[in-house]
Design a protein around this nucleic acid. Sequence first.
DNA 1: TTGTACGCGTTATCAG
DNA 2: CTGATAACGCGTACAA
Lengths: 353, 353
Amino acid sequence: MTEHRQATVFDVAKEAGVSTATVSNVLNRRNVPLTEETIRKVEEAAAKLGYRRNVMAASLSRRRTYEFGLLLPGFGGYYGLFAQQMERTAHAYGYHLSVFSTDLDSQIEKRLLEKLLERRVDGLFCHGLAMSHDSVRRMVGDGTPILFFNCWNELKELAIGTVNLNVYQACVDAVLHLRAQGCRSFYYYGHRRAHATDEQRKAGFREGLRLLGDTYPFDMIDAGDIAPEKLPGWLAERSEGTEPAGVICFDDWKAFVCMNRLIEQGYPVPDRFKIVGINNEFIAEHSYPGMTTFNIPYEHQADISFRWMLTHLGEQAKLKTKGDAQPVRLPEPGGEVKIPLALVERLSSAKRN
Amino acid sequence: MTEHRQATVFDVAKEAGVSTATVSNVLNRRNVPLTEETIRKVEEAAAKLGYRRNVMAASLSRRRTYEFGLLLPGFGGYYGLFAQQMERTAHAYGYHLSVFSTDLDSQIEKRLLEKLLERRVDGLFCHGLAMSHDSVRRMVGDGTPILFFNCWNELKELAIGTVNLNVYQACVDAVLHLRAQGCRSFYYYGHRRAHATDEQRKAGFREGLRLLGDTYPFDMIDAGDIAPEKLPGWLAERSEGTEPAGVICFDDWKAFVCMNRLIEQGYPVPDRFKIVGINNEFIAEHSYPGMTTFNIPYEHQADISFRWMLTHLGEQAKLKTKGDAQPVRLPEPGGEVKIPLALVERLSSAKRN
DNA sequence: TTGTACGCGTTATCAG
DNA sequence: CTGATAACGCGTACAA
C-alpha cells in the first residue's frame, strides 16, 4: 500500500550497475551476446526490486501489443467453452486475449470494436457479427486483420479468413443417421436469431432429405414461433403415421428443451421421437436419455485460427509446430476453413429395440 | 492494408491548426473552458483523419489504466454468466475488464496474475484462488487492490473486501424446504475440488439438520468418491425406510447428474427422491422434472463489487447512483458482503400428491 | 559487450 | 482560452 512507484528498468539498471539497454537486453533474452556475470547481476537486481515490466510502455515502444480481441455474442454454453479455449491458445502463443461479449446488440458491438481498436490490438477474432458491412469496413479501414468465425455472408471479404464449423455437413449427417436409426419423417427445430448459422443447418437438413430421395415427410419450425410446451403437439400432429420421427435441433440447448418437453408430455424418446443436437455439451452427456449430438473440436478450431492470424502477421517464429499437429495447410487469404463435426451417438437416437 | 500509421493527436492538431494540448482537451471533454469554434475544428479534423486515441499512451501518461482483471477457474455454467455480467458492469462504469481462466491450475493462475500486474491493472477480482497466501502477498506487495469472490479463508486479509454468495444459508434453507416437502432423510452430494465453497455448503447442510433437532438420518458423499452410476444405489440403500429422501447438490450440474441417474435407474423424482441444486441455470429451468434451485443475483453481485472497488480507488465521480439502486452500505475494508440466494421451487422437490 | 539517445502517443503543468 | 514542453517506461539503432 506504500504508494511506492513500481521499479522501472532505470531502477534495475542503477541497482545492477549497468545501463537500461543492458537490462532490456537481458530481460528480453535476445540474440545479442551477454556476459554470464551481467545476466546474473541484472536478474538479481530485478528480483530484488520486484521489477515487473510495464506492458503499455513496451507495446508503445515496440509498436505491437501482442494482444488480440475476441468478440462474442455471449458466454453461455458453446461460447464460454470456445472463449476458454481461445484464451488458452492465445497464452500458448504468447498473446493476451481480450474477450468481449456483445449481448447480440449491434450498438454494444460497435462500441466494443472501437475499444479494441483503441487498444491497438494486433488482430481481431469475431464470432457472429450483427453489424453492417459498412460499419465494419470503416472501423477496420486501418490494417487491423480480422478473422471471422461462422460467417457465411459477404463480410467474409473484409477478413483475412473465416473459420466455419461445418454445421451444414453435420445436419446432412444427422438426417442420414436418423434414417439409419429407423426414422420415417424429419423435423428441424431452429433458432432464427442465429442468422447464417441457422441457415446453414437448414440447408444441410434439406440436402440430407434430398440424398434420401425426397421421399420422406419433413418440416421446419423456429423457436421464435412456438412456445416449448406446444412443440410436442406440433411434432406429434404432423408425424402421425410416420413414426418414429427424427428431430434435428439447432444445438444441445434446443435439443434439451425439445426432448424434455416431449418426455414431460408422454412421448417416449427415442421410441416415438429421436433427437439430435449439436455441441456435445455437458447436458448432452449427462441427460437421460443421453443425447446424440456433434462434437466440436475446440482446440483444433482455435489452433487453426491462431496459426492463420499469426501467419498473416508474419510471426513465423512463434509457429513452432507442436510435433503431433500436422502442419495445417491454410487456404489463401480471404478463404475459408471448414471444421468437421463428429457425430456422437447416444440413447436419444437409438434404434427401437 | 496501407501501412498508414494511425493518426495521432499531433496530426489532428496540425490539421485543426491548434496544439496537441488543445486536441487532448477537446477530445476528453474536461473542465477547461473551450471555444465552440475550437471544438468544432478539432472534432472535424479528428473525424476526417479517422483519429482513434491510443489507450497505451494515454494509460502511460495518466498512470492509470482504467482496466481491471478478473481471474476465474473457467467459463462453464455459473462462471460464464458471472463473467458476462462483470464485463457488462465494467463497461457501464467506463472500465475495461480482462478476464482470464486458470483452469484450476495454480501454475497458470500465477502466470496470469503476473500478466495482469504487468498490464498495471487498477484492480483485481479473483474468484476461487488456488494459490498460496505467500504467493499472492508477494505479487500484490505493490498497492494493486484485490477483491475476492467466494473466499472464506485467511486470504481475505489481503483483500480490500470479499463478496460471498451465501451458500451456507442456501443450504440451511434447502434442508428446511425439503423437510417441509416431506423428506425424512437428507443427503449432500458435494464437490470437494471446489474447496471452501463446498465446505460452506456442508456447514449449512449440518446447520439445517441441527435446526430440525438432529432427528433425521443424513449423510454426505463427494463426486470425487463415487461414479455417477453408483450414486442412486448409494442413496437408495441408506434412505430405505425414510422415504422420500432429499438430496442437496453442490450445484445445478451435480443436481442434473444426480437426478438423471436416479430417473435412469427407475427411482422417481420427486416421489422417491427430491432434488435441490444451486445456480438456477438453463438446465434447471428446462429439464424434466424442472429443478428446484437457488437463483444468483448476478447483477447485484457485480454491482456491489465494482462499487466497492471504485470506492477504494476514490472514484466517487463514477458512482452515480442509478436511481433505483439503494446506495448500498459497504462494510469496512477487509470486510465481507454476503449475497443472499433465493429459492426457486420447481417440480424436482414437489410434495408427493 | 555495453551505453547513449531518441521515438512511441498522450496527458499534465505551466506560462502566455 | 491556448501552446510549449516535460514526463510516462521501455525498445532499439548506433556509436563506443
